[in-house]
Design a protein around this nucleic acid. Structure first.
Lengths: 169, 169
DNA sequence: CATAATTATATTGTGCGCAATTCAATAATA
DNA sequence: TATTATTGAATTGCGCACAATATAATTATG
């Protein structure tokens, strides 16, 4: 996967015999990029979840919202957004779809009419039992030991924190 | 972040004093989930790139495509798809936007008219120099040493491979 | 050679993800 | 109390991500 050779300046190349022409300028390679590994692994996770969530009628982001609600029911949209790091532009339509599916209700808070509180319906609560196998199936699919998964999760949480912090500087 | 207490069965709860009601059934918590850490870190990366790529007129996925082309110009759409793990439904419109921006050309291969080969324009090649600072800026924003980043990248690459493999079983 | 199967790309439709804007409700201030 | 500012959601618009389908070119097969 390496090719030293002298740099060919900016000249246009010979496209007839170009099978494996690697970066020769200052550029990084795609497969050396941490962000790309992250991007790919995240998509791989989403794809791994898909066949497990399809019987439940959930997409992966919808499942994350449901997990958040199973953990703490009765959250305002703002609270869900904080937990999931998503804004109303993403959550509002997603929550309407969950409402359509009969899994949640959206009711204005009486003490502050600006807030919309999301409650699980009975059907939404029952879905937690149906989803019981998903977690273990995913855990198996990762091939990680519990400790490996936890270490990796911790590294990623730290990475995210550092990225967000350096963004606000 | 903990609350023991007895399980309240399935009964609807008292929403007046509900500030921090955690999962009491068999459910996993959002912040214990590896997939969620991955999801968040990946989005954090994308957000970290945004202000760096905006001056270049690129989105993050577009930047990944350009990195792939800087690494190997003249790839067919299929090749880019394989490198980036994206299908034509994602790439076709993305590449048209890069063409609109004058960064690439899309030409049918003469030996196989089905293939569309993506070539960098001069402007597209020049953009690599303008993007020279992006890599180092991101590396700094991660706060990782080169070794830490490489270890993490390796772990994620393995994780992705295992996930994909268990998907095809 | 004609037909069927395969391959490469494009298109359509749905659902995020997010910036920007709008709107109503609440809070702050003169 | 009016006025202003802030807050919480929703909406709009754009760009992925991806399944499903369509189309055209190529290859395989009878």
């Amino acid at each position: 996967m390496q090719k030293s050779g002298q740099a060919p300046a900016n000249a246009r190349k010979d496209w007839e015999n170009m099978d494996e022409d690697l970066a020769e300028k200052s550029g990084i390679r795609l497969h050396e990029m941490l962000c790309f590994a992250l991007y790919g692994a995240s998509h791989a996770f989403s794809r791994a979840y898909k066949p497990l969530l399809e019987p439940l009628g959930l997409t992966y982001p919808q499942y994350l919202v449901m997990v958040s609600l199973w953990e703490a029911d009765g959250q305002p949209v703002k609270g869900l957004g904080a937990a999931l790091d998503l804004d109303s532009g993403t959550l509002s339509p997603l929550l309407k779809r969950l409402e359509q599916a009969g899994l949640v209700t959206r009711t204005r808070a009486e003490q502050d009419e600006r807030q919309v509180i999301i409650f699980l319906t009975d059907k939404g609560r029952r879905l937690q039992q149906e989803a019981a196998g998903v977690t273990s199936a995913i855990a198996a699919a990762t091939g990680c030991t519990r400790q490996e998964a936890e270490d990796l999760r911790e590294s990623l949480a730290t990475l995210k924190t550092v990225l967000v912090e350096s963004g606000s500087r």
